[in-house]
Design a binder for these strands. Sequence first.
DNA 1: ATACCAACCAACCGGTTGGTCTGTTAATAT
DNA 2: ATATTAACAGACCAACCGGTTGGTTGGTAT
Lengths: 218, 218
Amino acid sequence: MSPSSTKKSTPATRDAEATRGRILDAAEEEFARGGLLGARTEAIAAKTGVTKSMIFYHFGDKEGLYQAVLQRAVSMRVATIQKTDLHNASVELSLRNFVDSFLRDLSGNPNLPAIFFYEGIQNKGKFYSQIAITSLYAPLVDILKRGSESGQFRDVDPLHSAVNIIGMCVFYYCSIDNVKHLWPPGTNPLSTEMIEMHRRMAVEQTVASVLAPCKTTE
Amino acid sequence: MSPSSTKKSTPATRDAEATRGRILDAAEEEFARGGLLGARTEAIAAKTGVTKSMIFYHFGDKEGLYQAVLQRAVSMRVATIQKTDLHNASVELSLRNFVDSFLRDLSGNPNLPAIFFYEGIQNKGKFYSQIAITSLYAPLVDILKRGSESGQFRDVDPLHSAVNIIGMCVFYYCSIDNVKHLWPPGTNPLSTEMIEMHRRMAVEQTVASVLAPCKTTE
DNA sequence: ATACCAACCAACCGGTTGGTCTGTTAATAT
DNA sequence: ATATTAACAGACCAACCGGTTGGTTGGTAT
């Protein structure tokens, strides 16, 4: 019953683990807004509620914090990929599952696409290692290869079509403030309905973009 | 025969118009690398060959230069849109023409996608006015609406599918350094063959992503 | 109780960067 | 020729920002 009855629980103050987590959350937002270069350590500290020094105490330097943010994001995505049914006999269903799970991950964290765009453009992918990119793309490439070879998909290049499919999924999140004017004023691009609409459209377009034209009956 | 025989030609030195052009070119590269925030005026000046002061002399401030770069990019794209056949009786062909001309524009200037991404994420689209976005997207939205209503396309939402289509086209250019590791080492993502491959794939996937499934031979 | 250390803060430092100020030189008109 | 002005250069500044330093405080083991 007492606040510190359990051995491990620390009473909220002086909790290093919790502080690191809060810094990571704030940093994710800030890096999404400005990338490694444009993010301000002061801004991260302000959002977190601790002093700027804590960033350097816990993560070494700005770059260390950045890598920690990237690492966490990749790990989370890889975790949900492993929980998804991607080896279904129907490659169409496998593709549908992959894209659907990807888009649900994104809707839970709309900042991630921006962070990875920054990583590619600003840092030329320096911190987004070969291993990370492969682990994120390989399952999708594999599905496309299987579908292409079995004839269930059109004769698409697996790598190019994989990249294009990811692009179709994430562009919306990276361009919200550019394209928001296309919708009637007051429309909130991150509202539940809009997010769901985008997911439906992206899944349907994705599948249709590679699916073989319907075989003449029989 | 003399170097300054023609009235209009200025001998290369003290040519304000040419200097502005060179600054714009250098700025486009630099803004593509870091956005309005991350671009360094010194770097732009260095690439141009003139002093940093010239930027402020010709464009007022960093923001003025940035707006000039955006303006020029939008104008050029609008110009080619107007030269493209987008009102063909076949909406499929109209769509194909739009995407193809878009991708050919991009291959001539791979920096543009990054600039517009930065604009949306960093500046929240402040300088990418409602007018600009509309003039760039409206023709595509129109094609999708026509195709959807006539039944030649599936029952897609014109706005969402338009955004997704653009995403499929530009993602490759914005993520080159992230996804380059997917291809065998040494592959140049900006080589003529890769660019052409990407354009073919993007056009085919785009059309397939909205095209109605083939009617039973009737 | 008290010694100890991880967790934290406030003040400060040095390099970077957008922008300015003072001048200088090349073209042009008269 | 010479006055005028647009097109340039270079030195400089104030603000900003990543990172450091020295010191403080709260939990904890003995």
